[in-house]
Each structure stands twice: as structure tokens, then as C-alpha cells.
């Protein structure tokens, strides 16, 4: 076990965990921030996507040490009240079916739109291609990202 200093959603935390612990499990088990989901553990599905210094990252495959000194944002910190344009677009387009992958989809989309404010359809698809939705809400995700782009 070792101590790590983290900044998550603007708050400082000191956690005492095994040094090889992925950020995902520190968020979920230690900090009780369960919005970030476990899907595959090998950075293949995108359910665990968070922002590290504003860039989308797979928290299941980043050891905790990689988070020190960085600004971590999870779905809980994307907005205080669900008002982020991407969250609002998800609600407007009634995107989710089961909903499990959607936090990761939203985190990928919000990091992408922060970089590209006027994306084409194919840029959206390319940006979102690493996030699996087993329920198949892809056409809705695309529509939601498109409409969020207008409001970011």
C-alpha cells in the first residue's frame, strides 16, 4: 500500500492503495464515485472513460500513480447539475437503453467536443468508435453529439 494525492472533480484526496491499482478502482471502491463504469478492464470498451487534464482516458488501464498531479474529472464532476451540453443532449435525444455505457460515452464526447467544436459526422463516428454500446444506441449517440456541438 502507498499514499497518493489526487485531485478529482476539483477536490483533493489522499488515498492509501496498492501502487498498481487502476484509477478506475480507486474512483469506485475508495472514493465511492461509481459513475465511472467497469466494462472490460483492458481499455477496449470505453465504459470507464474519464478526463485526465481534459483529455479522455481509460481509467481501467491507468495505474493510480499516473493520476498524481493531474486534474481528474469523472462523470460526477462534468457538471454539478447535469447541465453540461453533452448531458443535456443525451436527455434531449433520450439516448440510453440500459444506460451502463453512457457515462463513458458522455465523457468521450465531451472531451472530443472541447477540442473540436464543429465536427463532421465522420469525425464524430471516429471519435466515438472506441466506446461500445451493447444496446446499439449508436445513431442516437451520433445525433446527441451533433446537437451538443451546437451548444458547447
Amino acid at each position: 500500500m502507498a499514499q497518493f494525492n489526487l485531485t478529482v472533480n476539483g477536490q483533493s484526496h489522499q488515498v492509501d492503495v496498492d501502487a498498481d491499482t487502476p484509477i478506475l478502482w480507486v474512483l469506485r471502491d475508495t472514493l465511492k464515485l461509481v459513475g465511472t463504469k467497469y466494462g472490460c478492464g483492458i481499455a477496449q470498451c470505453g465504459a470507464c472513460t474519464i478526463h485526465v487534464d481534459g483529455k479522455a482516458a481509460r481509467s481501467c488501464s491507468l495505474p493510480i500513480g499516473a493520476a498524481e498531479g493531474k486534474k481528474i474529472t469523472t462523470i460526477e464532476g462534468l457538471s454539478e447539475d447535469g447541465s453540461h451540453p453533452v448531458q443535456q443532449a443525451w436527455i434531449k435525444h433520450d439516448v440510453p437503453q440500459c444506460g451502463y455505457c453512457q457515462a463513458g460515452q458522455i465523457m468521450t464526447a465531451s472531451a472530443f467536443l472541447a477540442e473540436n467544436k464543429n465536427p463532421t459526422d465522420s469525425e464524430i463516428v471516429e471519435a466515438m468508435n472506441g466506446n461500445i454500446c451493447r444496446c446499439g444506441t449508436y445513431t442516437r449517440i451520433k445525433a446527441a453529439v451533433k446537437s451538443a456541438a451546437e451548444n458547447v
Binding site: 460526477e76 448531458q87 436527455i91 433520450d94 440510453p96 457515462a103 458522455i106
Partner: peptide, 19 residues
Amino acid sequence: STKNVDGFNIAQGKPLFGL
């Protein structure tokens, strides 16, 4: 057409699932 009653909670990453 009526919005998913859990849609807002899902978009905010609220705890909803067994895990």
C-alpha cells in the same frame, strides 16, 4: 413520446446498477 424516467440520472452517472 415520454422521456426515460432514469435518463437524467444516467446522464449524471448516478448509482443505479448492481455494481
